[in-house]
Design a protein around this nucleic acid. Sequence first.
RNA 1: CGGGGCAUAGCGCAGUCUGGUAGCGCAUCUGCUUUGGGAGCAGAGGGUCGCAGGUUCAAAUCCUGCUGCCCCGACCA
Length: 464
Amino acid sequence: MPCGGVVSANDSLPLPHKPGCRFLMRLSRYFLPTLREDPKEAEIVSHRLMLRAGLIRQQSAGIYSWLPIGLKVLNKISAIVREEQNRSGAVELLMPTIQSADLWRESSRYDAYGKEMLRITDRHEREMLYGPTNEEMITDIFRSYVRSYKDLPLNLYHIQWKFRDEIRPRFGTMRSREFLMKDAYSFDIDQAGARHSYNRMFVAYLRTFARLGLKAIPMQADTGPIGGDLSHEFIILASTGESEVFCHRDFLDFPIPTADTDFDDIAGLQTIVDKWTSLYAATSEKHDEAAFAAIPNDRKVSARGIEVGHIFYFGTKYSLPMKATVTGPDGQEHPVHMGSYGIGPSRLVAAIIEASHDEAGIVWPDPIAPFDVSLINIKVGDTATDEACAHLYRALALRGLDVLYDDRDERPGAKFATADLVGMPWQILVGPKGLADGKVEVKRRATGERELLSIEDAVTRIAG
RNA sequence: CGGGGCAUAGCGCAGUCUGGUAGCGCAUCUGCUUUGGGAGCAGAGGGUCGCAGGUUCAAAUCCUGCUGCCCCGACCA
């Protein structure tokens, strides 16, 4: 909605060639630094494309700037994650990136965490750290305010930058040191309650990844010292994935829980989770050859996968040492049962590209594309094409579509190549040849399918 | 952290072995011609050769130290 904020019912949008329009995204006035050649450091396709299409710039090993269209995608992913977290009953807050070492000493993790934690000393020689995760801090917030079981269940989350000083960052934002993460933390009076909280996140994750255009499969994950079955990694299949995964093909066609799912319906959610955990699915670490062999051959999937989410129940691991307790109905103090639930939007940008690209560039799924439409003026300066483009821009914007107008003084081939590289879902090619018959060409990026349509039909075709 | 490699113009590279005052392609700028899948011609600008020492009449090139980055492995949202 580039002009949504300023366009009222009878407003006429400024024409593209009219100076002073701050709301119209003209490529000639935008910042989209694309590269024709592959940067040599980029090994995997998503990293190459993110650099070439001008989404990111590396500033240091595993640390990136997000350039305009990269930031737009990141924000769109975060917005979808946020909507689904809210829908499931989680409540957003925001914790700082810098934390005090003292908090981490309470859980004994300050010494246990090792060199992955970036430790900082401030001017008063106080020991600080750039947070790699927030269990301690959220537990501190919780224990400061919550006293009664009546205030449970509670799930607090934030979307914040984290830092893990990986020995070897690689693959661009897939494995960076600084990364954006949505991390949610649930608090319940007992394990039964925690299971329901876990199920809420499980279902929210199914919806989130589906909305992002991904088929994510929950796979049994290592639960560490806690044990039990309450830990899943959500994996998407991609040929360049980091790990080897095995699962039943039927998962790919399982129905996604609908938007009106009742997240307070304990039995209902359990039914969904049971279905999504009823078939075999495991990463190579947890792979059970015998269980996999039992799957009919035509239902077996053995592929590479990328982890895009992880949900985890860890009981009283932090609430006990940090004394996060509530008074139960029995009048006694109970340490709360907790779980944590992560999704990495900055990793998802790369993961989505791994799962959705072709030889020419990125193929964005509609919901997270930086713009909905690349509007290509093949002959800038030609009155007919200029006016047709202005009309198309206005009509699409008024229907709420985000349009990037390529008004650069470039040859057609260069514009087509740029449009394919940056991968907006729709392209509209406006040139003298088509306009001679009153037509523009609408191209669907994902399929390459092209249609010659009148201007009005083109708008209808794209805006629905 | 172990092993390997790289660092020369915005990007990709040659030149380093065998020291002699820096080059190619793309990109950028100007002009002309072009204009439906990354145009052609002509011209121009842009580099203390990662940093610091050393050897030498002379160092991108040889020597020493440092820094940054990449790849393979172990580790991970």
